[in-house]
Every structure is written in C-alpha cells, then in structure tokens.
Design a protein around this nucleic acid. Sequence first.
DNA 1: ATTCTTGTTAATGTGCTGTTAATGCTTAAA
DNA 2: TTTAAGCATTAACAGCACATTAACAAGAAT
Lengths: 227, 227
Amino acid sequence: MKAHLLYVEDDKSLSFVTRDNLEHQGYRITHCINGSEALEVIKREQFDLCIFDVMLPDVDGFTVAKEFRKFDTEVPIIFLTAKSLKEDRIHGLKLGADDYMTKPFSIEELILKIEVFLRRSKITNPKSPIRFRLGKYLFDHANLNLSTPEEEKQLTQKEADLLRFLIENKNKVLKRSAILESVWGEDDYFLGRSLDVFISRLRKYLQKDEHIRIENIHGVGFRLQED
Amino acid sequence: MKAHLLYVEDDKSLSFVTRDNLEHQGYRITHCINGSEALEVIKREQFDLCIFDVMLPDVDGFTVAKEFRKFDTEVPIIFLTAKSLKEDRIHGLKLGADDYMTKPFSIEELILKIEVFLRRSKITNPKSPIRFRLGKYLFDHANLNLSTPEEEKQLTQKEADLLRFLIENKNKVLKRSAILESVWGEDDYFLGRSLDVFISRLRKYLQKDEHIRIENIHGVGFRLQED
DNA sequence: ATTCTTGTTAATGTGCTGTTAATGCTTAAA
DNA sequence: TTTAAGCATTAACAGCACATTAACAAGAAT
C-alpha cells in the first residue's frame, strides 16, 4: 500500500516539482492549492502524513493543522515556512506539528524526513486505525462518529457496532442470526425486532449517499451494498 | 517514569545550560563530553532519546549514531550541528537520525522536539509539557493551575490529573474504564460515581470558554471537545 | 484541638438508549 | 389470488446512566 500524503501549497511551480518528485518516490499525493480546499479534503479523506505550507492565500497552514488535529492526533505534520522565525517554528510544534522545513528546501531532505516519520508511525502505531470509508461517509468506530463533509453524526455504541459489522462484511449477505450473535451476543427472536429498528436507523443516517444501501434478503438477513 | 536522554556535547557552558534545562523539565540526562565516552555508555545503558552534537573532539556524532543504531533502530536521535550544511543534514538523516537542530538553538524548541518524539514513542513524562493550552485557558499541570487572562483557579491533584488525561486525548472518546485506569489506577463501579463528580467540577471550571465542552457519550464515557 | 482540604458517598432530578408495541407494507408459498 | 409470515417505520416506554449539589469522612495544616 502506497502512503497517502496531503500536500498544501499555493506556489504553482514549486508544488509541481515537489509533487512530481514525491509521486516518483512512490507516494500517493493529494495536493491542495489553498487552505480552504485543504479544510474540505481533510474531512473526507485519510492520510498518512501531511505537508502544510504556512503561508497560504486564504486560511493559513497553522489553522489547517489545528483543524486536522481535531480529527487525528497521530498523523505526522511537516510545516513549510518561508522565513526561519523561531516563533513560527515553536508555534507549529505546539499545534502538534512534528517538523518544519525552511524554504527553499532540498527535496532530497524532505523525502528523508517523510521516510523517517512514516517508518516511525508504523513502529509506534502498528494497528491500523479503526476508521472506515463508506461512500462519502467516514466512520470512526472508536469515536462513534459518522461524518460527511457537511455534517457529523454521533452514534451510540450499538449503532456503531452494527455498522462496523456491516462494513466489515460489505456486499455480503449476513444472516440475522450471525448479526445478532456478533453484535448482541445472542440470537433471540425478540432481539430480531430490535435489529430491524437499528437497521432502520442506520438507513436514515446513510441516506445522504445513494450508492450506499442496506438491503434486506427476505427470510435470511441483510446486506450493506455499495456501488 | 522519567524519560532517559543521552546528551553528547563537548561545549561545557552550552551543555551545562542545556542539561540544567532538560533536567528541570523532568528528564533524566546522561551527559557525555566526547564521542568515545558516548560509545562506552551506549553499550551498557538504555535511552529513550539521544541528542548528539556532530562536532566532537574525538569520535564525531555521526559515528556515534552509526554505532548506536547497531544496538537500537527505534530510539529517536536528534543531531546538533553548528553549520547548517545541507550535506550534513542529509547525512544525518540517512544514518537513522530523526531530526537535527542548528546551533545556536532555542532550548524551548529543543524541548518541544523532544516532546514530539517521546509522545510518539508513548513515553509519558510526568512533568512534561509543563503547560497545555486549551481554548482561552492555560493549564499548568505541575502547578495544578488553570488560568484565563482574567482569573486563576487552583486545582487539586486529581482534578489536574483528570484534566490532563482529557487534554492529552482531546476530541477522542474515552471509555470510563480507560479514564479510571489511568487517573485512579483501578476500574471500579463506585469510582465511576466519583468520576462523574469530577467531570462536573471540571465543567464548571471550564465554562468560561464556550468552545470547550466535556461531552458524555452515553454508556461509553467522555470526550473533551474543542472547536 | 481546630480548621481546611480533598475525594468519596448520597440524594435527587433529568435525559438517553435499547426494547417493545403499533401500524402498514412486502414477499413468497399455497 | 389469497394468506401468513417477514419487514419497515414511527412512536412510546421502562430502566438505567448521568448531572449536579450537598453531605460526609479522613487526613493535613495550623
């Protein structure tokens, strides 16, 4: 799996060269040309590392980092700063940045730094985060949070457990008994009625994306379908 | 558990100040005044982080790092370099360094960098960082002090411990059991009632900033939310 | 000895969750 | 086509989880 990098930089010529180099290095790059674009992207995509220019035409890199840290406290952030002001560097580090580079920087050095951080986050964070992407939704099981770029929905534990079980068996038919065993811990006729209610609720939460559907297989169970 | 740092530096006056600062910050420091001494020390002691000056009277910092990496590939290494030569920096990074700082450096910045790496290695330092910023509040855990520009509130040890745990896991859902384990040391139903009381107190202390909220996740736990 | 501080327990009121119930619709077998 | 069982959705509800304030007990400070 390629590492996915978020690169926010408004300078066209610099970003072209950098992006080209990083892609050539084998990374998948998502590039934003300003802060507000970045703010949208971080809501709906997942990254392994971020590179933020501090100086941006609209929302500055610090603000982007601050927002980003609300979603994720683990993913490394590297700041690019034109001036080498001590205050800027300290401010960045306090915001949860992991490093900064002063422009102009050497691409070779940037790549080395990226590798350092990616190596390290693999060591310290071997378990993949319990976040799933489902259509336009992002589902964070640990935080019981189901969000789209527009809004955010807080789930209950059971709702989240059920949704997770469905996602982990996406496009597969799940028997009622299997769902009840897995999510409720026991299989019982009356719990089946509860399951119906929960399915109904999840359907409502997921109706913002027409490619996502929870289908019923009559007499058998359910299937979370994505197309 | 205090984090144990290896600091190799020959400049007497600089190393005295740095060491003093780092110890005051709550770290345990082993200081070597030259490379060969460092080579001995790394064979018999264990460290959580290394700080190597590149220029040393005998064996240079790069060589020390190289030797050190034979024993340990995980522990972060920060180089201190007098000149800001690109080649030096790249050489360091290739040797398995994680970062470098150019002399003269700000001690505040060094401490922040150390924090960044230790945080990733999950080594928690009881005294660090001394202060957290939370909305309009400034929280000093060591001094049990929570202050706004207007007023100041003295916390109790438990209040401070709890607040710190919440801050360190800001915007994340924390299970009751996890909080009790971490702050009280044991997970027990009746302590849960105590936790409720403490949450309630913290809420009162934090009500001056409407962007800060301690939310309850029914049946799960709590989340300190900042927006 | 007494006062203060601090963490726990108690008391009381509120709110949320999962289940059950009610109602109408759909499916598939007779 | 009929009919019984299965499913969908909304509403209602009981039980428990939580919030808040007050009272209390044990230890520390004076």
